[in-house]
Design a protein around this nucleic acid. Structure first.
Lengths: 212, 212
DNA sequence: TCCGATCTGTCAGCGACTGCCAGTCTTTTG
DNA sequence: CAAAAGACTGGCAGTCGCTGACAGATCGGA
């Protein structure tokens, strides 16, 4: 049960990685929508049917990283002190992404992937929808955190959702800038500037209760 | 060129409206993804091929209102004084949508449509992508407005994009709340609370230059 | 009345995606 | 070691969204 399952699991992951790499180079060469699943499968030496056993959809080849990102962000937010302003917790949770863009190796690759995403309306749509799901998850998490701290003002789901959405708007703005030809090295700078400009007021950074 | 084209145009619009109504009732009854284009076309008494002559895609039956919304928002923003803080201009531009939700007639219908959108991942994805395009448009518009006013700090595309995205996050949060079973009448209230809580600081509401 | 523009349905086809079946290969078990 | 169990694969057929091409119907204007 130990080695057997892990070996299978590892093999599966290896094929997935190889498949994703093959697909990405095809996308860069021909464009996302101009590349058929048959071509990807043929280039990887498997059948189309098997492709869909590794990825649930053509989009998934590019976007499955977001599932990992969702877990990382949720963990990063959970690791922050409960009394920290939500905006700062989100900003810190985004930090690893900025570090990744600082790495000269990943930088060009990630920018290329982002360019693929933003060049295809279909992919961009799927991308935004996944970001939306991540926002929902983080909203619930922050909501629970706030409720655990002070059971007085728990009902601000809308404001919390907007706050998380605003933070992701900063992230998306910085990412788009990089994809649109901006220097990838400045990603962290863009993110900091945007999140600094939009930081909600109210004391030293707490989200204000407002109009109640 | 006057009446002829208009008559044709009017007829086309009428068919579109009828088609959209037929499709929406089917979506409400069976769900979006469980309803095929063939069924919609049959229910409307036309061929599938003709359906695609009126709507570019199945999504379009639900989402083509967004094109009109895009124009309305752009016009509303353009009508605001150039020296008004961007956040306030956006807030005012959103006002007509709140009024529409105040109308008891449209309220239930719009909430139902929004529920259809949020219940289908595919539709939600397309919806978010269209919102993204509207944001891009408004960003460029506000950017041009800022550049025309003071040619000093024109290059803040990222911050401006984040600002517009944050405003739409407030809009989306309020809309989702309504779709998720919240009282549609409170839409304007939710929107105001969210936009009040996230209003960027810096003087009386101007977006701060920050870290420069 | 006839001409041309427009609208329509039919058909054929592509691409993403799925269910089903059969064959292969590996792992487990008696 | 052989047999049963299970995972992985390819092929086939079919659905659904969507598109191009063709031909017939319809309608407005000359």
């Amino acid at each position: 049960m130990a080695t057997g399952g892990n070996l299978r699991e590892a093999s599966r992951r290896a094929v997935r990685t190889q498949l994703a790499a093959t697909a990405q180079s095809l996308f860069i060469a021909k464009g996302f929508e101009e590349t058929t699943v048959d071509e990807i499968a043929a280039a990887a030496g498997i059948s189309q049917r098997s492709f869909f056993r590794y990825f649930a959809s053509k989009d998934d080849v590019i976007l499955d990283n977001l599932d990992r990102l969702s877990d990382e962000l949720a963990a990063a937010v959970a690791a922050r002190p409960a009394d920290e302003p939500e905006w700062d917790s989100l900003r810190r949770a985004f930090a690893p992404m900025a570090e990744q863009f600082a790495d000269r190796e990943c930088r060009e690759h990630d920018a290329a992937v982002q360019r693929i995403i933003e060049e295809s309306p279909q992919l961009l749509a799927a991308y935004l929808q996944r970001l939306d799901r991540i926002q929902q998850r983080l909203t619930e998490e922050l909501l629970a955190r706030a409720a655990a701290r002070g059971p007085g003002r728990a009902e601000d789901r809308v404001v919390m959702r907007a706050l998380v959405g605003a933070a992701f708007a900063c992230l998306h703005a910085a990412t788009s800038q990089v994809a649109a030809g901006g220097d990838p090295e400045r990603f962290g700078l863009h993110l900091d500037r945007a999140m600094g400009a939009l930081r909600p007021a109210g004391g030293p950074g707490r989200v204000p209760a407002q109009s109640r």
